[in-house]
Design a protein around this nucleic acid. Structure first.
Length: 271
DNA sequence: CAAAGGTCCTGCTCGC
DNA sequence: TGCGAGCAGGACCTTT
């Protein structure tokens, strides 16, 4: 579920619901996430106020005066805010109870996500230290991106999914942005014209902005029974459409595997 | 049985 | 031969 737009949607929803709230209780029901959830996190944040909630790549950062809690949603994780008395669902692994009687619950069937605690400045934490620029912020320039393409020789899809190059481009939006810019996903990144690389950079931003905009419409449902932030209603040109007709030219959408991940493209539109 | 939207880690290959 | 960088593949889990 969570690519950058979903994490951003979650981040905005949480800000509206629990920013500035004091945590009155922490309940770790199953610490066995990607890395074990340390029991000490309870004493670190209990009684503390969330001073800021922000996103870096696909990581959510909850800043307290004592340090920062880092949550990643992995492949199947989600965060919901519910009212007291809401029954647990299977795979609700931890929760934070707030003074305002709301509860933030972490749900994650595959347990690829994490909850970590750090007292370092967040940018020097080992998981965040080597992350590339945010795709929607100033550091992700044409010059920077073309430079990375020149310096490497991997397939372009692998390059844009590399968090050291740019954060937040997951499997869905990688295929979508390559379609929008007319680049075959298996093209070596150093064999693409500067003009096309610049177009790709722009289309990465466009597809992420579009997805955030449609995710934004689900914010008000965050507190309801179904807390899934969704990228539904979204117009996907190629992802998951193998065997169907291309919306632009009518040719059949193809599927291949790159870096163990399903990849979708139109061999007519993407030279 | 295959595949699912993430990403860290290991071990291999290649070029110097 | 030895080394580092860059790259591909494996691993982590459960559900459909």
């Amino acid at each position: 579920m969570p690519e950058l737009p979903e994490v951003e949607t979650t981040c905005r929803a949480l800000r509206g619901l629990i920013s500035g709230e004091r945590i009155v209780n922490v309940n770790i029901r199953n610490p066995r996430l990607r890395w074990p959830v340390e029991a000490c996190i309870e004493e670190k944040i209990k009684g503390r106020r969330i001073e800021e909630i922000k996103r870096r790549g696909k990581y959510l950062l909850f800043r307290f005066d004592t340090g920062t809690a880092i949550i990643h949603l992995g492949m199947s994780g989600s965060l919901r805010v519910v009212e007291q008395g809401t029954p647990y669902k299977k795979h609700d692994h931890f929760e934070w109870n707030f003074e305002n009687s709301r509860i933030m619950r972490y749900h994650d069937p595959r347990r690829f996500g994490c909850l970590l605690w750090t007292e370092e400045p967040e940018e020097s934490h080992y998981l965040l230290r080597h992350l590339g620029p945010e795709p929607l912020e100033d550091g992700f320039t044409d010059d920077y991106f073309y430079g990375m393409c020149q310096r490497r020789s991997v397939m372009i899809k692998s390059l844009i999914m590399d968090a050291k190059v740019v954060v937040g481009v997951g499997n869905i939006y990688a295929s979508e942005s390559l379609f929008r810019s007319g680049i075959h996903p298996m093209r070596k990144c150093n064999r693409i014209s500067e003009r096309r690389v610049k177009l790709l950079r722009l289309e990465i931003q466009n597809v992420l902005n579009d997805a955030i905009a449609s995710g934004g419409s689900t914010l008000r449902d965050f507190l309801s029974a179904n807390g899934n932030p969704g990228y539904f209603q979204q117009r996907l040109y190629v992802y998951g459409r193998e065997g169907e007709a291309c919306h632009k030219c009518g040719h059949i959408i193809q599927q291949c595997i790159i870096g163990q991940r399903s990849t979708f493209y139109c061999k007519c539109c993407q030279g």
